[in-house]
Design a protein around this nucleic acid. Sequence first.
DNA 1: TTTTGTGAACGTGTTCACAGCG
DNA 2: CGCTGTGAACACGTTCACAAAA
Lengths: 216, 216
Amino acid sequence: MPRISEPTVRRLSQYYRVLREVEAEGRRLVSSHRLGEREGITSAQVRKDLSMFGSFGRRGLGYNVAHLRAEICAILGLDRRWRVAVVGAGHIGSALVAYRGFAELGFDIVAIYDRDPDRIGRRLGELEVEDVGVLPRVAPGTYDMGVIATPLRAAQDVADLLVAAGVRGILNFAPRVLQVPESVTVRTMDMAVEFESLSFELSRDRSRRRRNRDGA
Amino acid sequence: MPRISEPTVRRLSQYYRVLREVEAEGRRLVSSHRLGEREGITSAQVRKDLSMFGSFGRRGLGYNVAHLRAEICAILGLDRRWRVAVVGAGHIGSALVAYRGFAELGFDIVAIYDRDPDRIGRRLGELEVEDVGVLPRVAPGTYDMGVIATPLRAAQDVADLLVAAGVRGILNFAPRVLQVPESVTVRTMDMAVEFESLSFELSRDRSRRRRNRDGA
DNA sequence: TTTTGTGAACGTGTTCACAGCG
DNA sequence: CGCTGTGAACACGTTCACAAAA
């Protein structure tokens, strides 16, 4: 199996989304063209991405929707459930706990922590906000992933706590690059960067605009 | 001025952040090495990025912090204020309105809309939730940018409304690629893609792990 | 004929390495 | 000597174009 690039993984996620839609529409087969179209991806790119993992299609016909969906599901590691701990019970943390879409994909938010005594003990859906002080005492392996939804100043400390608790992946909402061991993967959602990239684009001369790219 | 790539713009945003920190620390000069270090960017990359816009440094010394900060501020279009309308007064929309960090960068959230009668009229900080039905009647130019923080099914309709209202940039939290005219720029924050890219990474054999990348 | 799978060509972004200047 | 600015080399991702298969 060749090295898989980050853009390829992100697109697999998009194909997976389209496949679920297409499956719901009752189609049995889908071409690389149709598969990429909805997400603005060329058919050549779709075929190249999929060919990294095997030959899933049939020449002249396309891909079997159910089969390809199952393959990508396994490739992305979505054929199991992931236990996620959220740290920070502010707006973002609450939003994540309230949103049901992640559980559908296999990501169960099983705990939410905060430092603020006013928040500790409050109910959020099925969960009760726990004191982040007890996080260092959870058994390793309790959580697979952590989400950092705290103010900036707490982010690195929380990252350290999550790493100590044995998480192997972190989704970070704080606008800062986190120091973590090589064995831990971090993805940062940086809204400031997105806003600023919009303002850069809007500040440019209209006449020299390029194709409208979308991070999707 | 050469064509500026998307990764370069995102890094400018990161340099800008470091420069504000470094300025607060009272430093007058900063080297390309120090400037990139905190965000995990090499000094060569820093110099290359900056050289796209001019020669801001002094050989043997580095860059003047205040001056470079002002230059990047202008390049990113942060030397003015941007009027932002948020559509969707759920958790994400509320989080954006409550967070003060964006105003510091020049992004003023000046309105929040929703469709739900239970939410319309409610106060969120300084704002009152307005009926999204009145959005088509705002004067063009009232908003520079829009944020889509609605459920998936409403996203494209809201995008159309925002475009009709004359916004030129959209920050989209719905997991879907939006159809907009070429003159409008969209950036999508897709949490499902981020979660799935984490699960892909965590599912891979540890031994073949690569350098830990961070989208920052 | 349709559509995949894929090497080869291409384009773009990153890194190297060093000349140039302070 | 230190650090920037930058062409040249390199690595990587995308697109092309076509043989192969249904």
